[in-house]
Design a protein around this nucleic acid. Structure first.
Lengths: 148, 148
DNA sequence: TATTTAGTTGCAAACGATTTGCAATTGCAT
DNA sequence: ATGCAATTGCAAATCGTTTGCAACTAAATA
């Protein structure tokens, strides 16, 4: 009876397990994260949160993100230039392709690349703790040029 | 009659060609960059510069770095957390392995990975403008454990 | 070489993202 | 219901970096 739908991460559970209080602002932020399909930054999360509970502060958003990151519930990405952007950690590992025009983030994964990285690190005498692979690009125009 | 030694980038030439004045502070900064074997950040460059000419300001370092970056003479790397670090652009493309304990940066290159990236982007309908591949790791301890 | 003037400088203040001190508030175990 | 440590909002602080501005200077010109 496994769900086929994307898993809604059980943040509250993760936090409780980590001995952290589930407060009102945290509930709001958590719910936003749970169904964010994109990779919002702190300010964006804050804006969405304020629409639900106008009393929430940006510091609390930052604090909660750090908390979740610490617990391993979310991943923080510092893409080129901009502020940190977050995503649920639940999904299995992947890298990112950032659309330079829209800021959209597309996820991808290449087992082959992962292996090559391991190989390279090994040759250099290192163990990889983590890595960062980001492709920055633009949508390819349709062959001829008449596309829009 | 090609040199076998690492090429000393001719920053002054590049700048002059770009119609930029070669001032005293710039000369100092440029000389520092020219023989920096590492990947210093702005503050580090500033410190080295002050030892040569105490009148140089940090803003000038930042301005010069931006200038050089604009001309394509150096590359800026925003490694995890820390400030931007710079390196001469002369060398052919490579990626970086960052030693988490020392901050040391080791360069590597994998043609195979580059190809795979292209392939992935293409499949996703994108052209890569540039990319970022960073491995963060620690020196592997010698097998048994008696190493230091 | 003296003149000229737009490009550069150092400084201090401004900046954006993020963190922090603190007093007031609130989960939640009792 | 009670009590206290965890958490909050706020404002001020932090860090890396950029910028406005008046003084300075590289380098083209006479």
């Amino acid at each position: 009876m496994n769900e086929t739908l994307p898993i809604r991460p059980d943040y509250e559970g993760e936090l409780r397990k980590a001995g952290v209080r589930i407060t009102r602002p945290r509930k709001v932020i958590l719910s936003i994260l749970a169904d964010a399909g994109d990779h919002p930054d702190a300010l964006e999360i804050f804006k969405r949160a304020v629409e639900i509970d106008s009393g929430i502060s940006l510091s609390t958003v930052y604090r909660t993100m750090k908390l979740l990151e610490g617990v391993g519930a979310i991943h923080r990405h510092a893409f080129e230039g901009g502020p940190s952007r977050f995503e649920p950690a639940g999904v299995e590992h992947h890298d990112h392709l950032i659309d330079l025009d829209t800021g959209d983030v597309i996820e991808f994964h290449s087992q082959r690349i992962e292996e090559l990285q391991q190989e390279i690190a090994r040759e250099l005498g290192y163990d990889i703790v983590h890595h960062r692979l980001e492709l920055y690009g633009r949508k390819r125009r349709a062959k001829a040029s008449r596309g829009g």
